[in-house]
């Protein structure tokens, strides 16, 4: 250090310092900032890949540039979240025309889905796929989630998210098999009959609370079978048919003569 201190007044010292400063700045910048040039290139190839997939699988209905037509929605501005939800749940590509596109095993792998999402997101701004920490059930308050679910969701999806009927063959699906990401995306994008719950209506934290509540329901009912959790109809049917049937059986056995 003494040698450096002795030369601090050397005439090349400012030049050396300047060079060092530039090196450090550049190094820190390179370390902290993801390289935008590389990322854009990857995005671009994703978009290209997604475009090819779209042309082959989706354009028949949604049109070559996703503009939609009579009875088929335009995908401009629906965002990556919508594509990720529809394709990862298998609802799109649609199996057949009907009151509602049904969920089925997804037809694309994760990489293809992210390519399709990147392509559709490039057509117009829309909701993005939520980051993992935003949908992590561990970060939500299940009690608050229950209050929000009862007010906003339970009328269609049932008190613990087992689904229910709508009009004319449409239905609210069970949420038991949905991933936290899919639940979040459905709230943000409002697929099919479902209304949109934007961030002003249910803030991202409130959405996380709802996910936490639904995740708790996956543990099942502590009292045994929940009979589908669709309410008093199933429970009444069980009591009247099975319960009273057993009682009648006992009465007949008691009254019958022994052989």
């Amino acid at each position: 250090m003494k040698a450096i201190a002795a030369r601090r007044n050397h005439r090349f010292a400012p030049v050396v310092l300047l060079l060092l400063a530039l090196l450090v700045t550049g190094g820190v910048y390179a370390a902290l900032m993801p390289s935008p040039a590389v990322a854009a290139a990857a995005d671009q190839s994703d978009i290209e890949g997604g475009k090819a997939l779209f042309r082959a699988n989706c354009a028949t209905c949604h049109g070559p540039s996703a503009e939609g037509r009579e009875g088929v929605p335009s995908l401009v501005g629906v965002g990556a979240a919508s594509v990720d939800f529809q394709v990862s749940t298998g609802r799109m590509p649609m199996q057949q025309n009907g009151p509602q596109a049904a969920a089925k095993p997804p037809q694309f792998d994760e990489e293809q889905i992210s390519q399709l999402a990147a392509y559709v997101a490039s057509l117009g701004p829309g909701p993005a796929i939520p980051p993992q920490e935003q949908v992590d059930p561990a970060g939500g308050d299940a009690a608050n989630g229950m209050a929000l679910f009862r007010t906003n969701c339970a009328m269609c999806h049932g008190s613990i998210g087992k689904g229910g009927a709508l009009s004319e063959g449409k239905y609210a699906p069970s949420l038991a098999g949905s991933t936290p990401t899919q639940i979040y995306e459905a709230m943000v994008t409002g697929p099919q009959s479902m209304p949109v719950f934007n961030d002003a209506n249910l803030s991202p934290d409130e959405k996380q609370d709802i996910i936490a509540f639904l995740e708790e329901q996956k543990a099942g009912s502590p009292g045994g079978t929940d009979l589908g959790a669709i309410g008093p109809v199933a429970e009444g049917l069980w009591v009247w048919v099975v319960g009273i049937g057993l009682l009648i059986g006992c009465a007949v056995w008691i009254g019958a003569k022994s052989s």
């Binding site: 007010t151 409002g190 209506n201």
Partner: peptide, 17 residues
């Protein structure tokens, strides 16, 4: 409902409930 927070008209987007 249930938080009791007021709603701005701009927050009510088409398709939301």
């Amino acid at each position: 409902d249930p938080s009791g927070e007021p709603i701005r008209a701009s927050e009510v987007t088409v398709g939301s409930v």
